[in-house]
Design a protein around this nucleic acid. Structure first.
Lengths: 199, 199
DNA sequence: GTCTATAGCATGATAGAC
DNA sequence: GTCTATCATGCTATAGAC
């Protein structure tokens, strides 16, 4: 692998991937700026200088973390929607996939995407915005379908934004060791947005 | 003012306050870690060394920014609730005060509170948590009253958390130069949470 | 592919003059 | 109360050996 090929999109089980996963946890816990390349090296058993064989800059690691977080969540959501039988099930999938990704064991990456945006250079933003838009388009389509079916209120663009805000914020208060499971939380959040059916 | 008195809670029109307001904007735009004491000095026409006459550390400035943001919003909400005539008006005040504070001209401070929490040392957290709890208690009381009146769904603790998440997230997408005013946005967000009355 | 060593620079904070 | 000067440290990234 030459220096010019460092932007290779994805490789499982590689050193690069191992590094990205470790970086996701460190960036989430300490923040990107407070995490040094020495911290990153320690986390995977490398000297700080050796990192720069795998990534050109520290920011390139941050971008890789974010891209991983958003694109893996998008893929999960696409699969869940494809498998859903009804509009109601698709709506439910939005909540379950998002929360399991955000609050699940292996998904510090998505959290980093939400809270370290300011550290992304202008040059790197367009690519990440594309990934984010693809994810939000999935949401929009399902919400539009649900509104047409009378399940949720018709102001779906604002609804999408408020719901995503609600879900994102859960990382600030949800505790895994509490009594509320992630899936139960998803169901209760869904209940809050469903229009009550008058008979 | 001696060194020992640097924790004086509040002073209007002081150099300290001027610095806190400038710091709020810088911390919001660049992040706390990326903002240097030299940046802070420049913003108020001081050399970096001179800052440390007013604050012992850079973190002390961050804490002051957050305390200002949350406590001034709390005071505004207290006044608005006291003035409200009905439960419905109190509910409306939650949205209008929060969004005007968060998205208004002079309130970068509240945004910093939301996004720089990780940079706060353990020693400084309890005081800020106290301020936050006071604010959220106001919300909880109004939501409980609104649920009792049938205006919103009864799961008010989760409702409080999802609503605050929705409102916080608005800083990520709301544009002041757009067609939607802050107060109109508050009304539409309120509409999304109100239970539709069956006749 | 990883190491050691370090260049080159920015950082938060302090000391003492005024 | 602000300035100048600077200390001590930490940072990202590079160079070259292995």
């Amino acid at each position: 692998m030459t220096t010019l090929e460092k932007n290779t999109p994805l490789e499982e089980n590689s050193r690069r991937m191992e590094l990205v996963r470790a970086a996701a946890k460190l960036f989430r816990d300490q923040g990107y700026e407070r995490t040094t390349v020495r911290d990153l090296g320690n986390a995977v058993g490398l000297q700080s200088g050796s990192l720069f064989y795998h990534f050109r800059t520290k920011e390139e690691i941050l971008v890789a973390v974010m891209a991983l977080g958003i694109s893996s969540t998008t893929e999960q959501l696409e699969r869940a929607i494809a498998k859903a039988g009804s509009t109601r099930e698709k709506l439910s999938a939005l909540f379950h996939v998002h929360l399991n990704s955000l609050l699940g064991d292996n998904q510090a990456a998505l959290e980093v995407m939400l809270y370290e945006w300011r550290s992304i250079s202008e040059a790197a933003k367009p690519g990440l915005i594309l990934l984010r838009d693809r994810y939000e388009a999935l949401w929009q389509a399902v919400l539009d379908e649900a509104a047409a079916a009378g399940l949720v209120k018709p102001d779906t663009r604002l609804l999408r934004r408020t719901l995503l805000g609600s879900l994102h914020w859960s990382v600030q208060w949800y505790r895994k060791d509490g009594e509320l499971s992630v899936d139960k939380l998803a169901d209760r959040m869904l209940d809050l947005v469903l229009i009550e059916q008058s008979k």
